[in-house]
Nucleic acid binder design. Structure first.
Lengths: 150, 150
DNA sequence: TACTGAGTTGGAGTGCACTCCAAGCAAGCC
DNA sequence: GGCTTGCTTGGAGTGCACTCCAACTCAGTA
């Protein structure tokens, strides 16, 4: 099966829809096949189906023959979820976030707290990585022409 | 059972021994109990024993009653291994690194390559985390008094 | 019409990195 | 002596996040 309706360049990983001008209005036409979305998002087709099964994604639209067709809203959510996942948020927390979002406007505060907590974790991880970078630089220097220590 | 011989302030997490003045000479006296090392390194006692079992650590010295007594060399290696682990290196790769180190001086190049590869990964992760930080800032701003998008 | 390739499902399986368990031993304290 | 605490072991168990499987359907092409 070839591309579904209109390919339209997919660039999920930059997550632009989340913090730039979202454009006129997100196109809710279901048109991306699962393999397209997999390629664009970096998530495997297994993972995409699994995310839907556990409720991270609302049930995706189907073609007349029952195949999934993702719309741009799905892509936006996947891009964001992918980022959360990539930066170490457990799937259970992602699910909590999504369920809050589904519950409506009155959960905005809870969602905010969840993201703030994650931001703290992200900052901590950046600090850890930077510290390790220094150690690695030192060791690599050592190995570039000297003896080793441990 | 109290502290073993001499407590001596343990500060593993800064990994100072690896990239600062290592001091006169690392004290090879076996004196730290497993729980002390666990507290100082952030690794559980389970993990410490497991690391030893799989060969990440050479067999640790024992007290006359058979309990482990870690020396400063062990601590230094654990500090470094802990950093590698914390920054996402798989245990299998850590093991490869340790085995290279055990094999002698002629493996310096291999060790260096391993660390260089890991450094690249670390840099990539830092970039990912920074990008996500921007998205989180944006979303949190949104949640601090407006509507949401996804 | 036959074949190929991409998709579907529920449920089972995998890999990693721990994490825990039961049973036992040794040391220190009341 | 009895109790508590900390340690020992091999092996089993756990949790997470996928990842794969078998059996199937459907659409498109030769």
């Amino acid at each position: 099966m070839a591309t579904a309706v209109q390919p339209a360049p997919l660039s999920l990983l930059d997550c632009s829809e989340a913090y730039q001008d979202p454009g006129p209005v997100p196109d809710r036409t279901p048109r991306h096949t699962i393999s397209e979305v997999s390629a664009a998002s970096g998530l495997s087709v297994h993972t995409l189906r699994w995310y839907e099964r556990i409720g991270l994604l609302d049930p995706v639209d189907r073609s007349h023959s029952g195949q999934r067709r993702y719309n741009d809203g799905d892509l936006a959510r996947l891009a964001f979820l992918g980022r959360l996942r990539l930066t170490g948020m457990p799937v259970a927390d992602m699910l909590r976030y999504v369920e809050l979002a589904r519950a409506g406007e009155h959960t905005v505060q809870g969602r905010r707290e969840l993201l703030v907590a994650h931001r703290e974790e992200v900052r901590q991880r950046i600090a850890d990585l930077h510290a390790t970078l220094a150690v690695l630089d030192y060791k690599i220097d050592l190995y570039s022409g000297k003896k080793q220590t441990s």
